[in-house]
Structures are given as structure tokens and as C-alpha cells.
Design a protein around this nucleic acid. Structure first.
Length: 812
RNA sequence: GCCCGGAUGGCGGAAUCGGUAUACGCGCAACACUUAAAAUGUUGUCCGCAAAUGCGGAUGUGGGUUCAAUUCCCACUCCGGGCACCA
């Protein structure tokens, strides 16, 4: 019966070997060809190895890059390793192996696993962030930031993880916990390096508009940057030489302000309280409030608490003296840390009620009864958009939402306030008190301060140490190696000490896509010609969890590199697709902890890499989370087997049936479009349908079969190569020319018309496509299924949608 | 609280410039092949009216626009994600 025997192991091993020997997927840098740069977010080689969810994104880029290669593009599709950082280090400490040894082992394991799935990576382009030849350039970028004043030392209190024993960036904290280990973070003042990402906040926001990225990720970034326009009020503090600034985004009702609050951990407090009798007592309360603020479940909007400072500001708007209170809900690190307050804010209102601070409403609802309640301070009214203002005079009687610009003008012209912008985005805390990271290339000199390591001395190689456990002292383990730490100051030649903090995990991944373009260059980060050729990344695929970390950092560094002329475009990643997670069959995350991990090796062994690939692309929409189902894999496997069986019915001289030809060309169109737009599931169902059609034929024309194989090749590279080689000896299917849809061949000769009577389908009939409208209408009314519904009834109208349907409307 | 997604058979999902809802796959059932089973093939498979024809109902809920709504509009419920003491 069926002599085709699908031995996936033999086929896959054979072709993987052959592709490697033939360098089938070597990157071609051909200036006469259009380029296409397809990139995966490179993995962190963890000790756990891959589960079936990991390759999903890699399969997609593989399919995409194979299509582009067959369409004649120069394709760059590389892979590498993001191997510095806390997880590798923590894992190494736990298992008492040097991180370097661990990382090497894990990379070897990952590579093996990836190879078995048949990806078309060009391994000559491989990179590893922990390779000194690589991080030389990570350090070089840091130095450029330092030289431009965008990297500086600071002692501000930052997030500190008491378990990982290191400072963290704002981005590394999730819900008050260390993103890595889940421990509650604390605020702690330590010496640290900070990158001024805020200076790029507006550029980062504006750049988003031109990117072909998922809406949700752009939205996340906008939220994260949190740009807010408002007014800055400046006022003198009575009986002192101090003036304070307050920021307000909802300043429309600023004439309602009756008091001021300051954050309990605000740096200005001691000065402000100078000369106040119970200064120490107040400071003690402030400290207590600040401490409370840091507690994990503290919600300041519910627990308003505070203490009066004894100080007043002179209201710039002429409302007399406004008392300054310390309040639990005021944040030191947003705006100026001091806020002018009124009854038109829930927290302020609650606070004032609690401490009997006078209030003065100026914004009212339109409803008179409701307005009365606001006037009597029974209710807090905050609808700045629809509420009606009574002050200032210029806008009295108008709604807050309509007068924003007028109020700004009024305040600025009278010199009462200045327009200002605030961001939620914090500067990037860039140092870690840990071993396994890029050394920060700075030398501290008592005379010259922090001095850049000369570029000719890069890389500053991470030395081997005996003990790489974190110290917890605010210094990294590197501080314990005097022979490494003590060096001459590059400026004055005097005694200097190396910076012992290392860079965060995100450093290496903030520019790695540039290195693939020119991964062996020892004299430049990337050759400008190569950069111009490959830039930007045309398709970038990875998890949505990187929206506010890696994807912001990388855009920041890229924009900086653009500003100093290293790269030619202002954005690194033109198009981005995010990959939906594959969850375990129990609906949970796949994790060793739950014992629900499905290993791709097992699937490759049992069903073959091609089946795994087709299945993962067929499961559902690419960007959607979906549950793994080992039961359903059999579908794709059966499909591939049938594709093989079809090869026995291929004939050199059989005629092409018109209908088959039409379906074939429609499939060419559909599959091409679907791959480009990442709708892999429908591409595969189209191929399955075409396969079913071919299955019904006695004899399949060889040209039809070859095209069918080509369309399937990006998804199932091994079996299609094997079957292709039965008919074509000279070239790999993966370097063959992608078929083009002939639009004349997809025109339907006959079409089915549905006939509706009062909106319900009553019958269908076949016509030649493009048939005369009147004839179709007449024919439709004569159909048995239709005539019984319209007989004896008054036809009000007949609508004809060309080649699709007839809709007859009759009186009931 | 604010912002962004989503909800379609037993299951994964398809179809959204409004035009025959349920493509493709899984599962299930029957039949063929087989001593038998598996595999494979063929056929069927949204629900209800006992079956066929036929009729009615169905795309989270309730309204609306339309000859026609999964698709557009309004209100709501639930699920997922982001932000959240941000003044």
C-alpha cells in the first residue's frame, strides 16, 4: 500500500548534517540584494534547559527568515547568549561551580537542543555577552555615556534586595519585590552608578509612534515613562530663607489650594524645621511615616497620616499663608516631593478632614444638589474635566477640561507658575554589588575623582576569584582582590582604585543586535558600512515581559549611540512581534517546581522536529498564550506523513486540473501573506486543506507537488528537503525560489450565491462569476427554496452583492 | 481606580473595508481493511424538534443601527495583561 515510511530521525539527522556541511544558511552580505534582519531575543542559558515553550518564538523567526531567503533576500538570522547576571550567579553559588563553567555547560546544552529543532542560524555570527571580546564594547559604550555626562555616581537611596545583596533598578522591582528572587526590597542609600535615561524620556516616547509594534507593548512603555505635564509653583516659606517648588498636573483648580504637604523622607525637612521648637519630635514622626510608606501593603490613598511642620508658605496665588504638613502619601521622588493641596483630591480631602485643615472648593458639579454637597464639604469632587470652575475670574463658569490652556496662560503671564514636565521613569541604577557582570571601567583617584579607563586598556577583564559570593557590604566581591583593585590613576599616575561594582544583567543585551552585524571586529563595535547595510532589525520576536525592561534600555542605548554617530538610525527594532506563552496542560506555567514541564527533546524524538514546529505554529494565534496539548500533536504528524505519501502519486506528465491550479495559487498567496503577518496557524490550515485536495487526486503533477513542498518548507524544513530531493538533485529547497501567485489563475469561474429572504438564507445556487445582475436576481427568485417564501408577497427590494449573495426583502 | 487586549461547538481555533458562522486540527461515532487490535482509509459530527426533509435557536449578557451584525454603536459581566500614594 503506502511504501513511504516516515523515519523522522533518519531524515532530520541527515539534513541537519548536510546543511552544516554545505553551509546552507550562511549569511550572505550581498549589497545588490535587499537585506532582511530577523532577530530573536537571545536566551539566558539557564541550568534547566529548554521546555517546549521556549522554541515557539525561535520557530517563528525561523519560518520567517526561510521565507525571506527563498524570496531572494540577504538574511541575517543569528543567535547568541545573554549569560551575565544574577540567575547564573545564584545558580552557580548554590551548586558550587564557577559561573563561567556553568554558563559554558549550559550553552553547550542549549545549542544541542536548538540544533535538534533544525533552525537556520548562522553560527559563525554567534555572540556571548560574557566573552571579553564582546564586553569590551559594552564597557566602551559605558565610557561614552560617562564622557557625555550620562553616567554618574550617586548616593541616593535605591531599591536593595536583602537576599541578592545588591542594589536594583526600578525596572527590576515587581510589586515591591525583587524580580529575580521575590524578596521584599528595601530602600537603602548606597554608592551607585546611574544612567540618565530620563534625558531620553521624550525621545523614547516620540519614537514609539513610528514603530510597527504591538499596541500593548507601546502602551506599556508609555505608562512606564509616565509623562505628565503640569505647572510648577514657587513660594517662599515664611520666617525662613527657603523657597519651595511644588508640582501640579491638575492645576486647573489651583485656586482651591489651602495647604501644602511634603514627603516624610524629603531631604529639605531638617532645614525647613530649623528653629521650630519640637523639631526633633516632628522629625521622629516623619521617620516613622517614611518607614511606614516603605511597608509592602501600605496604601497611602487609604491611610492618610501626617504631622504639621509649624511652617507656612506664602501662597503665590494670594490666598494667604498655607500650612505645610508632612504627609504619609507624599512621595519624595516624584515631582518635587512637595505638593499644594486642595479639596479636589481624594487624599488631600481625607487628610484635611482628619486634621481640620480649612478647605475652599472652586470646582463644582453641574447638578445643583450635588454642587451643594461639594460647597458644604460633604463630598470630595475631583472631576477636573467636567466640573465647573469659579476661579480664577478668567475662566469662571467654564468646565475644567476646556480651560487648561487658558489657565496655563493666566498663570504664566502673571508669573505665578511655570509649565513643567514630570516623568514616572526613574534614572537607571546601573551598578550591582555582585561578581558575575561586566566590570565598570572606571578608576577612582583621590585627586582626580572617577576617571575613565583609557579605551586602549579595554576590556577590563573580570578577574577570577576564589569567592564570588556577594558581600552584602555595598561592595562587590571584586573589592577583595587588591592586586586587581589597586592601579595607577590614568590621569595623574597617582594611586587609584578600580570600580568594583559590575553592570546589571541588562547591559549586554542593550546593544547585542549590533554586534551580530560584525561579531569579530576588534577595532570597532560595528563597522559603519555593515551597520548601514543591516540596520535596523526588520523583525524582532520575543516575550512581552521585556516591554519595560530590555526594550526600553536597548532603545535608550541605541538613541544614545545614534546621537554620537555610531549607528545610522534612531530606532533599533522596526517591527516587533510578541510571542504568547505556552502553558502546561494544567493551565499553569511550565516549571520544574510543578513537575509539568514538557521537554522538546522528547517531542523531537517521538514525533520529529518538523512535527513540533508545525504543531507550535498551528496551535493558535502566535501572540496568544495557549496550553500545550500532547494529544493534539498527532494532527500535524499525520499531515506530514500524508505529505510524504503524496510523493508516490507524483507524475511528470499529468495535466493540471483547473480547480487544483486555482487552489494552489490561492494557497501561494495566502501562505506568503500569512507568514509575513505572523498568522502561522492559518497558513498551516491552508496547507492542510491543499494537502487534502491533492490527496484526492489519482495523479499529482510534479510542478504542483514541488510548489506544495516549497510552501511547507519554512515550517517543516527536513521532510520537505527530503521529498524535494526526490525530484531536484542540484539545489536545496531552502535556496529555491519562492513561488509567486499568478493573480489570473485565482479568479473563480463559478461562484455560489446565497439567497436570503428577510435576512435568512433560504437557498443557494451556482452561477458563472460576473454574471448579469438582473439575470441572477430573476434566477434567485425561481429557486424552490426561495419561491415558497416570497410567493404572494410584496417584494420591497432586492439587494445583490456581486458574486456573493442576493437579499430579498418582502412584506411580512 | 486608569489604560490595553479578549470571550465563537466536547477542546485548540477559523471567518471582522458587515454579506452562506463554525475553515483546519483534536476528540467522538459508524463503516472498510484485519483472526483481532493498532495504524490507515471513508463517512458523519453546533444545539433542539425521536430520524430524513424541513423548521427554529445559537458567536459572554442586554439594547441599538441595518435588507443583513462574530464584525459597527451604547451599557454591562467575566477573563488576561500593563500602570497605580505619580498630586
Amino acid at each position: 500500500m503506502n511504501s513511504f515510511n516516515y523515519d523522522h530521525k533518519a531524515v532530520e539527522e541527515k539534513w541537519q548534517r548536510k546543511w552544516k556541511e554545505d553551509k546552507t544558511y550562511q549569511t550572505e552580505e550581498n549589497p545588490n540584494k535587499e537585506k532582511c534582519y530577523v532577530l530573536d531575543m537571545f536566551p539566558y542559558p539557564s541550568g534547566e534547559g529548554l521546555h517546549v515553550g521556549h522554541p515557539k518564538g525561535y520557530i517563528a523567526t525561523d519560518v520567517f527568515s526561510r521565507l525571506k531567503r527563498m524570496q531572494g533576500k540577504s538574511v541575517l538570522h543569528p543567535m547568541g547568549w545573554d549569560a551575565f547576571g544574577l540567575p547564573a550567579e545564584n545558580y552557580a553559588i548554590k551548586n558550587k561551580v564557577h559561573p563561567r563553567v556553568m554558563v559554558e555547560k549550559n550553552i553547550a546544552r542549549y545549542k544541542e537542543q536548538l540544533a535538534s529543532i533544525g533552525f537556520d542560524y548562522d553560527w559563525d555570527r554567534e555572540i556571548n555577552t560574557t566573552d571579553p571580546k564582546y564586553y569590551k564594547w559594552t564597557q566602551w559604550i559605558f565610557l561614552q555615556l560617562f564622557k557625555k555626562g550620562l553616567a554618574h555616581e550617586s548616593n541616593e537611596p535605591i531599591n536593595w534586595c536583602p537576599s541578592c545583596l545588591t542594589g536594583l533598578a526600578n525596572e527590576d522591582v515587581e510589586d515591591g519585590k525583587c524580580e529575580r528572587c521575590g524578596t521584599q526590597v528595601e530602600k537603602r542609600p548606597i554608592r551607585q552608578w546611574v544612567l540618565k535615561i530620563r534625558e531620553y524620556a521624550d525621545k523614547l516616547l516620540e519614537g514609539l509612534n513610528d514603530l510597527d509594534w504591538p499596541k500593548s507593548i507601546k502602551e506599556s512603555q508609555r505608562n512606564w515613562i509616565g509623562r505628565s505635564e503640569g505647572m510648577l509653583f514657587t513660594a517662599p516659606v515664611k520666617d525662613t530663607n527657603i523657597t519651595i517648588d511644588t508640582f501640579s498636573a491638575h492645576f486647573e483648580a489651583c485656586y482651591a489650594d489651602t495647604f501644602v504637604v511634603i514627603a516624610p523622607d524629603h531631604g529639605l525637612l531638617p532645614d525647613l524645621l530649623e528653629g521650630i521648637d519640637n523639631k526633633e519630635e516632628i522629625l521622629e514622626t516623619a521617620k516613622h511615616l517614611a518607614h511606614k510608606q516603605n511597608e509592602k501593603d501600605f496604601d497611602g490613598s487609604k491611610n492618610v497620616e501626617g504631622v504639621f511642620t509649624g511652617r507656612y508658605i506664602v501662597d503665590p496665588l494670594g490666598n494667604g499663608d498655607l500650612p505645610i504638613w508632612i504627609a504619609s502619601y507624599a512621595l519624595a521622588d516624584y515631582g518635587t516631593g512637595i505638593v499644594k493641596c486642595s479639596c479636589h483630591d481624594e487624599r488631600d480631602f481625607a487628610f484635611a478632614k482628619k486634621y481640620d485643615i480649612p478647605l475652599k472648593p472652586v470646582l463644582f458639579p453641574k447638578d445643583e444638589v450635588e454642587a451643594g454637597k461639594v460647597r458644604d464639604l460633604e463630598e470630595c469632587f475631583v472631576d477636573m474635566k467636567n466640573g465647573v470652575l469659579t476661579e480664577p475670574e478668567e475662566v469662571a463658569g467654564q468646565s475644567g477640561g476646556s480651560v487648561r490652556e487658558i489657565v496655563i496662560k493666566h498663570l504664566e503671564e502673571k508669573g505665578l507658575a511655570k509649565k513643567t514636565v514630570n516623568y514616572k521613569l526613574r534614572d537607571w541604577v546601573f551598578s550591582r554589588q555582585r561578581y558575575w557582570g561586566e566590570p565598570i571601567p572606571i578608576i577612582h583617584c583621590e585627586k582626580c575623582g572617577p576617571v575613565a579607563v583609557p579605551e586602549s586598556d579595554l576590556p577590563v577583564v573580570l578577574p577570577d576569584v576564589e569567592h564570588y559570593e556577594p558581600t552584602g557590604t555595598g561592595e562587590s566581591p571584586l573589592a577583595n582582590i587588591p592586586e586587581w583593585v589597586n592601579v595607577a590613576c590614568p590621569e595623574c599616575g597617582g594611586e587609584g582604585k578600580r570600580e568594583t561594582n559590575t553592570m546589571p544583567q541588562w547591559a549586554g543585551s542593550s546593544w547585542y543586535y549590533l554586534r551580530y552585524m560584525d561579531n569579530k571586529n576588534d577595532t570597532a563595535l560595528v563597522d559603519p558600512e555593515k551597520e548601514k547595510y543591516w540596520q535596523p532589525v526588520d523583525m524582532y520576536v520575543g516575550g512581552a515581559e521585556h516591554a519595560t525592561r530590555h526594550l526600553i534600555y536597548a532603545r535608550f542605548w541605541h538613541k544614545f549611540l545614534h546621537d554620537i554617530g555610531v549607528v545610522s538610525e534612531s530606532e533599533p527594532f522596526k517591527r516587533l512581534q510578541h510571542v504568547g506563552l505556552i502553558q502546561a496542560e494544567d493551565g499553569r506555567k511550565m516549571s520544574k517546581r510543578f513537575g509539568n514541564v514538557v521537554n522538546p527533546d522528547d517531542i523531537v524524538n517521538t514525533y520529529g522536529a518538523d512535527t513540533l514546529r508545525v504543531y507550535e505554529m498551528f496551535m493558535g494565534p502566535f501572540d496568544q498564550n495557549i496550553e500545550w496539548s500532547t494529544k493534539s500533536i498527532i494532527g500535524p504528524r499525520r499531515f506530514l506523513e500524508r505529505v510524504g505519501v503524496l510523493s508516490e502519486r507524483v507524475s511528470e506528465d499529468s495535466e493540471i486540473d483547473k480547480n487544483v491550479e486555482r487552489e494552489l495559487h490561492k494557497a501561494i498567496q495566502k501562505v506568503s501573506e500569512d507568514i509575513i503577518s505572523f498568522r502561522f496557524n492559518t497558513a498551516i490550515s491552508t496547507l492542510m486543506t491543499l494537502g487534502n485536495t491533492l490527496h484526492k487526486l489519482q495523479s499529482i503533477p510534479v510542478d504542483v507537488y514541488k510548489i506544495f513542498l516549497q510552501l511547507l518548507a519554512p515550517f517543516a524544513p527536513h521532510i520537505t528537503e527530503e521529498l524535494w530531493s526526490m525530484f531536484v538533485k542540484e539545489t536545496s529547497i531552502h535556496n529555491s525560489i519562492w513561488p509567486v501567485c499568478n493573480t489570473e489563475k485565482i479568479i473563480d469561474e463559478t461562484v455560489t450565491i446565497a439567497v436570503q429572504v428577510n435576512g435568512k438564507v433560504r437557498d443557494t445556487f451556482e452561477i458563472d462569476s460576473g454574471k448579469d445582475e438582473d439575470e441572477v436576481k430573476t434566477e434567485a427568485q425561481e429557486l424552490p427554496g426561495v419561491s415558497k417564501w416570497i410567493e404572494g408577497k410584496n417584494i420591497k427590494k432586492i439587494i445583490y452583492i456581486k458574486d456573493k449573495l442576493i437579499s430579498i426583502v418582502v412584506d411580512d
